[in-house]
Every structure is written in structure tokens, then in C-alpha cells.
Design a protein around this nucleic acid. Structure first.
Lengths: 219, 219
DNA sequence: ATCACCCTACCTGTTTCCCGGTATTCGGTT
DNA sequence: AACCGAATACCGGGAAACAGGTAGGGTGAT
């Protein structure tokens, strides 16, 4: 019986080490390469076309797991991709699925579920844990939490404006600095509040800080 | 040579499994118990007073790692505690140190650093990774004296109101919930802005989140 | 008992933000 | 070609926040 070759992309070195140790206990699994961000993961896949599965974290610096997945799919690689991540929000899940992952398992899962996912996916099936499926279902029914992940579902311009809002600039000041009409900035602010599902500026700032959009020590 | 007995508290079961596998490779380390949240961790420590080190994650449901640390210290236990977490912001670090952890290592670290931390702490020393020390130093150097040290120079009532502001409550809502006049809440808000040296709500929320007054988790 | 805070409350403006629209242009995708 | 998202801009009205005061009662410390 052929063993399953694994690539891992996660910025938590400790987690990668732990996962490798965990997987080395399984006879039929073999970790052949690792990467610490999405960009490296894309390169890693090109370097190891013989690998069976790439395990990606959603939240990573440089290039997140979803962008990496999209890039790999765009390259035409048939590499199987399993998202193994902290993010259990429906937004992350749906975007991951749309990007083309073959499975989605949350880090709170037990290792048995995880190994099950690897074997299923290696066999050509898909695998989504119960928790993930539930999150997707409940998101259809009502208010879901879109965020909490590393990457916000907002455009670059919106991100820029959000960062300035979190740095205490008023609408008018942002408009001046970006050479925009205050109306435009207001529109962006409005869209941000809507997209991120918050009520006001306070909510925007909280998300901006929590997701690391503004650094503790800015400018 | 006596082996080091470890307890682990982390809500990511996968991470716990990986860590256990990783530690089982080291001859002198032995995982004797695990917990999935802070409350369980406190109980676990009482159940295993013979353990040498408790490894805690900062972000956990039910009771976070910092509260758990405080609770364990309050119980008079001399248990050594190592924070092993994703959070690299100075607010989390200072709060953890104040709560009484013996070490702080980030999940992006290499396993060698981690094992080094375990051995140092077991030997009665403290261990803080370079990254952590740098974060602390820059937090001390960068800002004005008012905010450093994690503790805000504000009264309990102000802290309470600041937390609510950061949770997107409006002045009127806060007044209702605290049985106060909106005028009073406005006065507090005014004083907060002045005391913390910011311009508006955005600044208040930024500080509230960065100092950990509002948890990244829940709601 | 005076001082320093804290907590409470009020008043008057002004500024900023929030909501609900509409609308055009541009660049990709289908 | 039709569609969609991003980015731009505009309007009117209402809600909330901000600024700069005043002020009395409480508590703990010097």
C-alpha cells in the first residue's frame, strides 16, 4: 500500500512540528515538505508535484491559505488541498470552498477526524467536518459572523480606509489625505459597516485591531 | 534524571495532539494531562499537583489562559506556567506576565525554543522568547507613559464604560444598562478621551482592544 | 479638614457619523 | 453582451458623538 505524501503550509512553526510528529505515528502518511506562508506554499507545490495533499492554514502572512489555493488551482495543478485552520466562521469556509479546497477541518477537531480527512481526500473524496457543515447551514439561516479570521472580506481600498478610521482620522481628514470626496469616504465607511456586520465606528476599529490591520505601534 | 511532567490546556485538540506527539519524542518530557479550556485547566492542576509545568493557551473559551493563571496563583499553587499562544501583542504579554506566568512562547516559534523553555522553567528559571521581549520593549519605548504596563490609568467605572463603548454600545444604551443619565456617560466618555490622549471613539476602542480590555473571543 | 479623585448630572452648541437611497465608470467573468 | 464588484460621487435627514463648560456629593489620604 502506497503511503500518502503530505505538504504542510502553516505559519505556526510549532504547529507544523507537532503535526509532523503526529503524522509520523501514522504508517501510511509521510510529510515531505513544509512552508510558512501562502506564497511559499505555491512554490512548494510546484516543487513537489508528486505530493498527494497540501494542508493549508487559512490565516497566514504574505499570502493567506485561500489566495494560495486559488493560485494553485489557477496553475492547473490537481493537487488535493485540505484546509486545516482555526477559523470556523462561515465566511472563511465558503470562501475556502469556492477557492477549491477538497476538505476543511478545524484545529479544535480530534486527530482521528483529521487522519480520516487525509485518507478520504487522498482517495479522491471530499471531507468536511460536522462542525464545518453545521456552520455553513446556520449561516444560511441567519446572521453569521463573517470575520475573526486573518483576512477580511473587504477590498484593498476599504482596508486602507478602515486602517485610517482606526487611527482616529475623521471622514474629512481621510478624504483630504486620499484626495477623495468626503462622500466617497462615507460610502466606504457605510459599506465597511455592512460588510463586517458591525453597528458603528467602534465595531470597525475593534475588528481592525483584532485582525492586526493596525499595528500596536503605528507610525 | 527525573523526567518533566507536563499538563496542557488548549482548545485546539489538534494542537494538543500534535504537541503531545512532539513532546513524546523528547526523553525527558512527559504529558500527563490535558484540558480544553481555562476552567478545566484549573481543575487539572488541582488533580495533578505533582506536575511540573502547565502549558496554557491565552485564547480559550470558558476561561482564558490569563484568568486561569490568576486562579491557579490565587489557589497558592506553585505550579510553573508557560504561556504558549498565538497572541504576540504587548497587551496579551503584559497581562500574562502580571498574572504570573513563568514563560511566554509564541506558536510561530521553533520546537527547539519551546523545549528550551520547558527545560528552563522546570529548572526554576523564567523563559521569554526574543520576539516576546522585543514586543515588550517596543511597547514601553514607543508610547507615552500613560498606557504602558497594560494597566490603564482610569477608574473602574471608566473602564466599565470603555469596555461597553468598544462593544458597540451607544451612549444611550450604556446609560440604560448602567442605570445612569446619558449625560453621565457622556462625561465619562469625555474624560476617557482626555485621559487616554485620543481624539475620538476610534482611539478609545483601539486602546481598549490593544490592552485586552475587550476579549478577542465571544459575542 | 483640605485635597484629590471619582461618580454623578446638566446645558449648549457644533461636528461627525449613520442610513437609505441613486448613479457612473472601469475591469474582469461568464 | 450582460453581469458583478470595486471605486467613485452625490443628497437629505436624523442620530450620535464631541467640546467646553458647571456643579454637588462621596471617599480616602495627607
Amino acid at each position: 500500500m502506497k503511503s500518502i505524501n503530505i505538504l504542510i503550509a502553516d505559519d505556526h512553526q510549532m504547529f507544523v512540528d507537532g503535526l509532523t510528529a503526529l503524522l509520523s505515528d501514522a504508517e501510511d502518511v509521510n510529510v515531505i515538505g513544509t512552508a510558512a506562508n501562502g506564497a511559499d506554499a505555491v512554490a512548494l507545490v510546484q516543487l513537489h508535484p508528486e505530493a498527494d495533499i497540501l494542508i493549508v492554514d487559512i490565516s497566514m502572512p504574505v499570502m493567506d491559505g485561500i489566495s494560495a489555493t486559488r493560485a494553485i488551482r489557477k496553475d492547473g495543478s490537481g493537487m488535493k488541498i485540505l484546509a486545516l485552520t482555526q477559523n470556523a466562521d462561515s465566511g472563511s469556509i465558503t470562501r475556502a470552498v469556492k477557492a477549491g479546497v477538497d476538505g476543511y477541518v478545524i484545529k479544535t477537531s480530534k486527530k482521528e477526524d483529521f487522519l480520516e480527512a487525509i485518507r478520504r481526500i487522498a482517495a479522491g473524496e471530499q471531507y468536511f467536518s460536522e462542525h464545518v457543515k453545521n456552520a455553513l447551514i446556520s449561516s444560511l439561516g441567519g446572521r453569521d459572523e463573517k470575520i475573526l479570521g486573518g483576512e477580511l472580506p473587504i477590498s484593498p481600498r476599504e482596508k486602507e480606509i478602515l486602517a485610517m478610521i482606526a487611527q482616529e482620522f475623521t471622514t474629512n481628514e481621510i478624504a483630504e489625505r486620499l484626495f477623495l470626496s468626503p462622500y466617497t469616504v462615507e460610502t466606504h465607511r457605510k459599506n465597511l459597516i455592512h460588510k463586517l456586520g458591525v453597528r458603528n465606528t467602534a465595531g470597525l476599529v475593534r475588528i481592525a485591531v483584532q485582525t492586526g490591520l493596525v499595528d500596536s505601534r503605528d507610525e
